[in-house]
Amino acid sequence: MAAARFFVGGHVQGVFFRASTREQALHLGLRGYARNLHDGRVEVLAVGDVQAVERLGEWLKEGPPRARVEHLERIAADDDEAGPTFETA
C-alpha cells in the first residue's frame, strides 16, 4: 500500500483536470481525491497499490489534453486520509 500527495501547478484549473484525474485513479483502483486550491494548483491524494500510485504520478506530469502542467510536487501522505473511493472536491 502506498499513499502520496501531489501538488500540480500550471494551467490545471478549468480544463477538466480533477475529473480526468478521478477517471485515471478509478481505472487504477486508487482511493483519494483531487481538489482545486486557492493558489491555482490542484492537490491530489492517491492511495493504493504502489505501482498504481506511480502510474498516476506519471500521468499527472501531463494531465488531460487541455492542461499545461508546469510543476509537480510529491510528498508522503497517510493512507487513512483517503475515503473508500476517489472523489473530486
Rank of each mutant, 00 (worst) to 15 (best):
M1L: 13
A2C: 10
A2M: 10
A4F: 00
A4L: 07
F6N: 04
F7S: 00
F7H: 10
F7V: 07
F7G: 00
V8D: 03
V8K: 00
V8T: 03
V8E: 03
Q13K: 06
V15A: 03
V15L: 08
V15G: 02
F16C: 11
R18H: 06
S20A: 09
T21Y: 01
R22Y: 08
E23M: 12
E23P: 05
Q24M: 14
Q24R: 14
A25I: 08
L26E: 11
H27C: 07
L28A: 10
L28W: 05
L28P: 04
G29A: 06
R31N: 10
A34Y: 03
A34T: 02
R35M: 12
R35T: 08
L37R: 14
H38A: 15
D39K: 04
V42G: 00
E43D: 10
D49S: 14
D49K: 09
V50W: 13
V50D: 13
A52Q: 11
V53F: 04
E54C: 02
R55H: 13
W59M: 15
G63H: 01
P64T: 10
P65K: 08
R66T: 07
R68G: 03
V69K: 01
V69T: 05
V69M: 11
H71Q: 15
H71R: 12
H71A: 07
L72A: 00
L72N: 00
E73S: 09
E73H: 12
R74Y: 06
I75M: 07
D78Q: 15
D79I: 04
D80E: 14
E81P: 02
A82M: 09
P84W: 09
T85Y: 13
F86K: 05
A89V: 10
